Amino acid sequence: MAVLGENRYGKAESRVVRIVRDTPRHEIVDLNVSSSLRGDFDAAHVSGDQAAVLPTDTQKNTAFAYAKLHGVSSPEDYALALASRLLEAAPAAAAAEVRVEQYAWDRLGQHAFARRGGDVRTCEVTVSRSGASVVSGLKDLVVLKSTGSEFKGFLVDEFTTLAETDDRILATSLVARWRHDTTDVDWNASFDDVREVLLSTFATTYSRALQETLYLMGSAVVDTMPGIAEISFSAPNKHHFLVDFSGFEVDGLTNDGEVFIAADRPYGLIECTVLRDAPA
Score class of each variant (00 low, 15 high):
2 A>R: 15
2 A>K: 15
3 V>Q: 13
3 V>E: 14
5 G>T: 07
6 E>C: 10
6 E>M: 15
8 R>A: 09
15 R>F: 13
19 I>Q: 07
20 V>A: 02
20 V>I: 11
21 R>W: 11
21 R>K: 06
22 D>Y: 09
24 P>G: 08
26 H>D: 03
27 E>F: 02
28 I>R: 02
29 V>P: 05
30 D>R: 08
32 N>S: 09
33 V>C: 00
34 S>N: 02
37 L>Q: 04
38 R>W: 12
40 D>R: 11
41 F>A: 09
43 A>I: 06
46 V>W: 06
52 A>P: 04
54 L>W: 09
54 L>P: 00
57 D>K: 11
57 D>C: 01
60 K>P: 11
64 F>D: 03
65 A>F: 10
65 A>H: 07
66 Y>I: 10
66 Y>V: 06
68 K>C: 15
68 K>Y: 13
70 H>E: 04
71 G>N: 00
76 E>R: 02
77 D>A: 15
77 D>I: 13
78 Y>N: 03
92 A>V: 10
96 A>R: 13
101 E>Q: 01
107 R>Y: 03
108 L>K: 01
108 L>C: 00
109 G>C: 04
109 G>K: 04
109 G>S: 13
110 Q>Y: 14
113 F>V: 07
115 R>W: 04
119 D>T: 03
124 E>H: 14
126 T>N: 11
126 T>A: 11
128 S>R: 08
128 S>W: 08
128 S>N: 05
131 G>A: 07
134 V>P: 03
138 L>I: 04
139 K>H: 09
140 D>H: 05
140 D>R: 08
141 L>M: 03
141 L>R: 01
142 V>E: 09
144 L>D: 04
147 T>G: 00
149 S>N: 05
152 K>I: 04
156 V>G: 06
160 T>I: 07
162 L>T: 03
163 A>P: 07
164 E>F: 14
165 T>P: 00
167 D>M: 12
169 I>N: 04
170 L>K: 09
171 A>K: 12
172 T>I: 09
181 D>R: 14
185 V>T: 02
186 D>V: 02
193 D>R: 15
193 D>N: 13
194 V>T: 05
196 E>V: 14
197 V>T: 08
199 L>V: 02
201 T>E: 08
203 A>C: 02
205 T>E: 12
206 Y>C: 11
207 S>P: 01
208 R>F: 14
211 Q>I: 10
211 Q>E: 00
211 Q>K: 01
217 M>N: 00
219 S>L: 14
219 S>E: 10
220 A>E: 06
224 T>Q: 11
226 P>G: 07
228 I>Y: 01
228 I>M: 08
229 A>S: 10
233 F>A: 10
237 N>W: 00
238 K>Y: 06
240 H>Q: 07
243 V>D: 01
246 S>P: 01
251 D>R: 15
254 T>V: 15
254 T>S: 12
259 V>H: 10
260 F>Y: 06
260 F>N: 05
262 A>Q: 12
263 A>I: 15
268 G>R: 13
270 I>N: 03
273 T>W: 02
274 V>D: 01
